[in-house]
Design a protein around this nucleic acid. Sequence first.
DNA 1: CTCTAAGAGATTTTT
DNA 2: TCTCTTAGAG
Length: 730
Amino acid sequence: MPNLLDALNPEQLQAVTLPNQHALILAGAGSGKTRVLTTRIAWLIQTGAVSPAGVLAVTFTNKAAKEMLTRISAMLPVSTRGMWIGTFHGLCNRMLRAHHRDAGLPQTFQILDTQDQAALVKRVLKSLNVDEDRFPPKQVQWFINDQKEEGLRPRDVAAGYDEFSRRAVELYAAYDEQCQKEGVVDFPELLLRCHELLARNEVLRTHYQARFRHVLVDEFQDTNRLQYKWLKLLVGPGNAMFAVGDDDQSIYGFRHANVGNMADFERELRVANVIRLEQNYRSHGNILDAANALIARNRKRLGKNLWTAAGKGEPLRVYEAQTDGYEAAWLAEEVQSLQRDGYARRDIAILYRSNAQSRVIEHALFSAGIPYRVYGGLRFFERQEVKHALAYLRLLANPDDDAAFLRVVNFPARGIGGRSVEALQDAAGAAGTSLWQAIPRLSGKTAAAVGAFAKLVAGMREAAPGLPLPETVGHVIEASGLVAHYKTERDGADRVENLSELVNAAAAFVQDETYAAQFVADAAETPTAPADPLNAFLAHAALESGENQAGEGADALQMMTVHSAKGLEFHCVFISGLEEGLFPHEQSVAEEDGLEEERRLMYVAITRARTRLYLSFAQTRLLHGQTRYGLASRFLDELPKGLMKWLSAKIGARLDAQAWRAEPPPARMKARSAGAGVPFRIGQNVVHPKFGQGVIVSAEGSGEEARLQINFGREGMKWLQLGYAKLTAA
DNA sequence: CTCTAAGAGATTTTT
DNA sequence: TCTCTTAGAG
């Protein structure tokens, strides 16, 4: 076996071989971050510094966790079984299962995903007769999650100043009570519960601190306050935390990622080892120079400058299109030309700021016959039919799970309407029981219909224990009538397919025992009964939403938002829609922090490219049904001119008579002169001596009296009178 | 209970 | 403009 440390650069080597003290590794894009993390774990084990059971490594996504496990297994002939490697939620789930009694949870507690949680909040609001106009369920849900992520229970929330928060705290309390009653736990609750468990139970805390000699954290810049607090509980006098992150790639502020955790960590735990990984192994020089120049404009940085031993490479190519339609057509053309140059489609990515932009591009690619794959969208376990099947399975595990009960009590339809459900809810409410337990209290016609459902579920529950998990799943999707129902539906074929795929997923799950082990209680910690596969599978389904798109193997062009491109790399990258208002997004530019995050997002986008980077924007874009006249993104101005090569627009030259969604503007613009005797057109670029460049958005009046509305981008939108403003055509 | 029509919302995403 | 959700009628 070759030496693990052989191929490391000096900084990587230093990081990998640090003594067991707190450390912060500032790892730039493409600097071998995962490599350092995995090599350190392998090295620690190989040198006997720690046993596999002494390692805890935490990531944000299951993908990252899996990748880590795979790479460690490749480096070491040791089983990774004893290690705790997983997501924050996965590890907390594991700990809570092992100590469910101490955590005040039933052993079979179920996990609510975001949709389930929204439904439960709604249900609680309804039962309390809350006015949904004044207290929108979504906002209440956000409020609850915000509090939980700050580590606050209803009693800890400072008395609200406004009416909303005062009432919201009460709703939070009612919601928590209902969760407890049903034995369900939402995502932030997993973390909060686990945090409370460790905070209150000194025996457990010291046990885990002693066990996990090394606590390693990936993407530390993305942690929220609660996650950081949880990590701090895991480190004690005898162990240390090794955090890897990049403040320049912090792009999840909107979901409460707190970059400040990096500085706090350094200060609070007196981190003596701060190592910067600045050598980039991914991109050519010009690309890195552009990225460095851009990010240097941010004020709030820990500071870092990427460099590469590779050559300068090609210049960045910039393209200005007239419309989003032309931009898309150009993208398709350019992709074809790249293919002719020998690039595989899977090595090319088109990135955009928001999902809405993908439609036009998809249209153009489709017309050009280029196979593509769009990331994002519904994931396997989030599909309606799969969620229905899971709801039946949840009832097998715990019939008191009201959320699951309500989801399928009348699906497929079996004559249990809203009134019947209400009667049942009333009965349950009066008796203080779950819906399931309230069934015998019903009378009349309702009782018969619901009774039939109860019998169905009871039958499944009896059959399940004797069957292997995949057969249970198979039985449930048939006996529930789900398969039959979707078979009769018009477009149900895919859904039937997905249901049988669920059986496969269950089969794969029970077979992959290393992975299944992530979800079962640890024998060392709990001498209790072994976790049953059904429960483990349900937790797996909730914690890992599955692939978002099929066809992974096919050679297809990659399309995704900049956010989902983080962590990936491609030979050729297109960053499209570089317009003020879109990227940076208009909702972010008002605040300094918002703009800086947008700039980091652009930094992430640029650093995805290995050899060739394209930047494009459109003068005109259809957004929400309205034509928007945007200026080129300020980020284009912030890149060094010398690195960029502007491609000239071949207007319509090679475009066939495709019906692009956005019509070619020349025709439309001619028809829309800004008014009689006005020498400008709507959409025309103009220059103003004080405000600089702008685009005419609309106009009123005529001749010298005419007033023009002009978007000056950074300077904002202005109304100017033609007679006074010294405007010139750009 | 199912179908249709009107209304809201429209960055970014994982668990 | 489009899409998804919800309310109301049949």
